[in-house]
Simulated assay, not measured.
Amino acid sequence: MPVELDLAPAAAQVSRIAAHVRDEDLAAPTPCAKWPVTVLLAHLVFLSEAFAAAGRKLPFAGDASTIPDLPVDWRSRLDANLAALVAAWRHPEAWEGEASAGGVTMPASVMGVVALDELVLHGWDLARATGQRFHAEPADVRACTGFAESMSQPGDEASREGLYGPVVPVPADADGLARLLGYAGRDPGWTAP
């Protein structure tokens, strides 16, 4: 099986945005309800480790139900984790069989999209919370939208629990990223208070 998606552009966005987070930004609110920037960054450090392990088909001991505290070396650790994540999913075998992350096992081809979805959505969250630009590649938006839309049909509310908030309606002529954000329970117009 060929490599399905390149996670490098989304990982590069997260890395760029994180590099410009100032200490005074850490307590700022984010579009993720009840998650200040410090918790969002801790989640990014954790998920990048978990999805790198998933791409390499290695067990990961972390507990997805608990976000650890933000490590002191979060900047260098996040960069290293993102590089490892991208490298792991560049191997064709990462997309074959099954993969596990956060206590969930699913087809590896879906797990890779979930990893991308986490990078795109939380990259946007972090950019919004810290007043930075965000760009997502059109192919990444399409892949993530397909995943989010599939979980956003009436009656699918239970399957979204813990992954997305309630669907946020967006205008019919909204661009692809805004549609993805709406499916993922985010208001595309969110700004920090």
Rank of each mutant, 00 (worst) to 15 (best):
D79Q: 15
D125A: 06
G62S: 14
T66F: 00
A87D: 15
A61R: 14
E93P: 10
A108L: 08
W124C: 04
A136I: 07
G102Q: 09
A84C: 08
A143L: 02
E98H: 14
P138G: 10
G123V: 07
C144P: 05
L126C: 07
G165S: 06
V104W: 06
E157H: 03
V86S: 15
E137G: 02
G62Q: 13
V72I: 10
N81F: 09
D63W: 13
A174G: 12
A172W: 00
Q153W: 08
G146F: 06
G155C: 09
D156M: 15
P92C: 03
L116Y: 07
A61M: 05
A136N: 13
R77D: 07
G62E: 11
A115D: 03
A88P: 10
G123Y: 08
Q132R: 13
G112D: 01
P107K: 14
L121F: 09
P92E: 13
V120P: 12
P138D: 15
H135Q: 12
G131Y: 08
R128G: 01
A174N: 04
V110P: 02
S109D: 08
V86I: 05
A83Q: 15
I67E: 05
A115S: 14
A61E: 15
V141M: 11
D125I: 09
D125L: 01
P68V: 07
G131F: 11
Q153D: 01
S159C: 00
E161I: 12
V114F: 13
A87Y: 12
A101Q: 04
W95S: 02
N81L: 11
S100D: 00
D117M: 13
E93R: 14
E157Q: 11
Q153E: 13
A115Q: 08
D140F: 02
D173R: 09
P138H: 08
F134T: 05
A94V: 04
W74G: 07
T145G: 11
E96W: 00
A108S: 07
R128Q: 12
G146R: 14
T145Q: 06
D73L: 05
V72G: 10
D117K: 01
S100C: 08
G155L: 09
G165L: 01
A174P: 08
M106W: 10
N81I: 03
V120E: 12
W89I: 01
V104G: 01
G102A: 02
N81D: 11
A129T: 02
V110M: 15
R75P: 00
E149G: 14
E137D: 14
E93G: 08
N81E: 05
D140L: 04
L126T: 02
I67D: 06
G131D: 02
D117L: 12
V104Y: 12
D156C: 09
S159F: 07
E137K: 04
V86H: 01
A136R: 12
A143G: 11
H91S: 13
L85C: 04
F134Y: 13
E98Q: 15
A148R: 02
D117Y: 02
R133Y: 09
L163G: 00
L82Q: 10
V120H: 05
T130C: 11
